[in-house]
Write a protein that binds this DNA or RNA. Structure first.
Lengths: 169, 169
DNA sequence: GGTGAAAATTTCGAAGG
DNA sequence: CCTTCGAAATTTTCACC
């Protein structure tokens, strides 16, 4: 997927109701056999397989991954970090974005509208590890204000997005 | 996994270096064959397969899922929502947690330490859809304060947690 | 688009060091 | 706990509706 095909493949075909069902199923459980998925969406395995291939070629399905229990690998602490950067050049911004993106503790990183400029979700082992991360963060580039909010309890965390119903046409 | 076995299976064996490698690989790409994973971690397929089975039985690997491109299914807007609930009973809290957890737009939902009581990450199609969500949220239970922060740009978003190196023993 | 079945891979378990 | 080997299941392709 590094040649012309990858561009051609990115056709933005509208997703029909069956594609949406497939996405809903695969977001929940990607270990199902194609035949099983076909059953659930009312298709036999070949057409179901073709649709999945196409959804992957189109980039609708990004990839398949295993989800790992945060606590079981000793990463007990989730932190939401709000950053005010102050006024900066495009070059500064790129440096900042690249540096933060490269930190493996950073699971999510968004540029925001409004009072906060950037928002991070960071996962670390404990407070000590967070302190190290924090020092690394503020040591990388100058920042106007950084606020850390610590999670006490994960009530819900999913990767499955709510696939919208098909537009009426 | 609904009987005694599920309890027995939840043994908390310490993960060795190879298990950690397997987790790192599978968090990145769960579509690889067992033989391919074995190659990458220096194992032939049977022992690699057994380790993966065990990591699943132990709940270290929670599940395998497909990741879907948010924009390609028309969910263009990510919102971080900070909630101050004020003082409330345990019963209130359960009602609140259940109601919010049941909303499919809520991708993450944490109880926080400090000034903010709860933090949500919400994914919706657009501002109009967010307004509907917001009304649903504040209509469900009384809340002292709700702050919505809108993402302009997703700079990084991953599901792979940084598996810590094996403790020195 | 869809069906059904053959070919190519992969998974999973047995036997043994 | 690992390796090799093979049966069973699944994925993927193909010829045809």
């Amino acid at each position: 997927m590094t040649d012309i095909d990858s561009v051609v493949a990115e056709s933005n075909r509208r997703l029909d109701a069956i594609d949406r069902k497939i996405l809903t199923v695969l977001q929940q459980d990607a270990s199902l056999s194609v035949a099983e998925i076909g059953d659930r969406v009312g298709l036999s395995s070949t057409p179901c397989w073709k649709r999945i291939q196409r959804l992957e070629a189109d980039g609708v399905i990004i990839k398949r991954v295993a989800l790992v229990d945060q606590d079981k690998i000793g990463l007990g602490l989730s932190v939401f970090v709000s950053i005010e950067s102050g006024d900066h050049s495009d070059a500064w911004l790129k440096t900042f974005a690249d540096a933060v993106s490269a930190m493996p503790e950073v699971i999510e990183f968004y540029r925001m509208a409004g009072d906060v400029d950037y928002m991070l979700r960071v996962v670390v082992a404990d407070m000590r590890a967070y302190d190290q991360f924090y020092k690394k963060l503020i040591g990388t580039v100058p920042l106007k204000n950084v606020t850390s909010r610590f999670a006490m309890e994960k009530i819900k965390s999913v990767t499955a997005l709510p696939v919208p119903p098909m537009p009426v046409s």
